[in-house]
Amino acid sequence: MSERETSPEWPLYEVFVRGKRGLNHVHVGSLHAADDAMAVLHARDVYTRRNEGVSVWVVRSEHITASSPDEKDPMFAPSGDKVYRHPTFYDIPDSVPHI
């Protein structure tokens, strides 16, 4: 067995679960796991034990690129007063779901 570098803690993963009534995966939390396969098992055990999910995604936290809190205003404030970007000015037929 070759010398392997061991770190004191397993890498961090972010967990996304798609619920039975949900159409998309939703971030539910994070966990530690040694590799991707173990992260899926851990996600199943930690985040779907109350019958919440039908599908799980995991991704190493370090692979997520996030916006910076410092840029919050330039990033998001400009959309705050542009109500006309919402499709609220016409009627949606009842037969069109998930809008």
Partner: peptide
């Protein structure tokens, strides 16, 4: 009232 639903 459960966010994800339970459906036991």
């Amino acid at each position: 009232h459960w966010a994800f639903g339970t459906d036991f």
